[in-house]
Design a protein around this nucleic acid. Sequence first.
DNA 1: ACATTAAGTGATT
DNA 2: AATCACTTAATGT
Length: 218
Amino acid sequence: MEKLSVDISTLVRQHFPQLAERDLQEEIAKHGMVYQFQAGEVIMGYGSYIKMVPLIVEGSIKVMREDEQEGKEILLYLLQAGETCSMSFTCCMMNKKSAIRTEAVETTTLIGIPIQQVDSWMTRYQSWKNFVMMTYDARMLELVRFIDQITFQGLDQRLELYLRRLQKTTGNQTFSLTQQEIAKDLNVTREAISRLLKRMSELGKVKVGRNQITWLGG
DNA sequence: ACATTAAGTGATT
DNA sequence: AATCACTTAATGT
């Protein structure tokens, strides 16, 4: 994690145009801090107390949920520039430990807003309140889709959606990750991923290499 | 050349 | 789809 000195107001106007109030923009610039994380770096671990809400300016992050039992975890969703982590809001305001783990997928820049401000802005700025509500709504929908997926759909469709989402959030179509890492994200075995990718590459949906996968759409 | 790690495969449950 | 056991292929030292 690295602190950066950049013009926060510009970042906000560029990536969060919905936060339109001038005063709000100034407050974000005043209280916010810009951090940069490298690919694979953990932003928030399980059980850590969150003291900031992140506004993602560049890059993308994975949001993982840990299973009750040891070691197992599963990818809940991906967040990209212009978004924020809705879990942070509740964790911050209730002063609770994080129930999730977030990790940078690629080089990611974000503005950290201290909790004190997050709370007071809710009543003072309409656009902030709307932003928080919209974030919740979007994430709720995503979670419902996630539940549908793991209960009703086969692994083949889950894998396709996983690759689609990676493409959408990162903007790339080639990803540097191992099949073991994909298996971990989806909480399935590596062998299952290997066999599925083989079939998908025969169908021309994907191109596989060592440590590298290219989504060819379809 | 050798060791290590990623990926492919068949058999079994 | 998981687990196991094993092979093959790619990479690093």
